[in-house]
């Protein structure tokens, strides 16, 4: 019966969503920043190091998504093959995953935009790349807060 395995199913759904949405957001953010970076490099290839760092910044949300995936899978015991998870716990994991799913996805998009603008800044004033990095990192704070909300909730759910 499907309902017998409702707990593990919900848990895997939670873990997958946590890895999926921030990953997609990061891919979009890094992708957009990469396009902007290629334009700058066409003019001046020596700026590669500076624009690469800026391009990588929106990529962290994907990592936080994978981190949440791992936390849900290992805390629930699924990673070790434990299928004995109550549906309440599974639903709990699904709800606990919401912050990183939504905030991780959206913050990656916005951080990608700030990174693109930062790359345009580096094109004109390469010596100010540090400031461009800080501007992009300001957005990431909210992904970090969402990650902590998810992880701390996952830790407190009893299987």
């Amino acid at each position: 019966m499907f309902l017998e395995n409702l707990g593990p199913t919900l848990t895997i759904l939670a873990a997958s969503l946590a890895a999926l949405f921030p990953g997609v957001g990061s891919a979009k953010g890094v992708g957009g920043a990469g396009e902007a970076a290629a334009g700058v490099l066409a003019e001046d290839p020596s700026k590669f190091g500076r624009v690469l760092i800026l391009q990588a910044l929106p990529g962290t949300q994907g990592i936080y998504g994978l981190l949440s995936w791992f936390m849900i899978m290992s805390q629930s015991g699924l990673l070790a093959g434990n299928l004995d998870i109550s549906w309440q716990a599974g639903l709990g994991y699904l709800i606990a995953a919401l912050p990183i799913v939504v905030v991780g996805y959206l913050s990656a998009l916005y951080q990608g935009k700030v990174s693109e603008a930062g790359i345009a800044l580096v094109a004109k004033r390469p010596e100010e790349s540090g400031k461009a990095i800080v501007l992009a990192v300001m957005v990431e704070t909210y992904a970090i807060l969402a990650l902590l909300a998810t992880i701390l909730a996952v830790f407190s759910i009893q299987v």
Binding site: I63, Y64, L66, L67, M71, L147
Partner: peptide, 10 residues
């Protein structure tokens, strides 16, 4: 905390 966990989990 978030970065410590990210480093060790990856």
């Amino acid at each position: 905390l978030a970065l410590v966990l990210a480093t060790s989990v990856i």
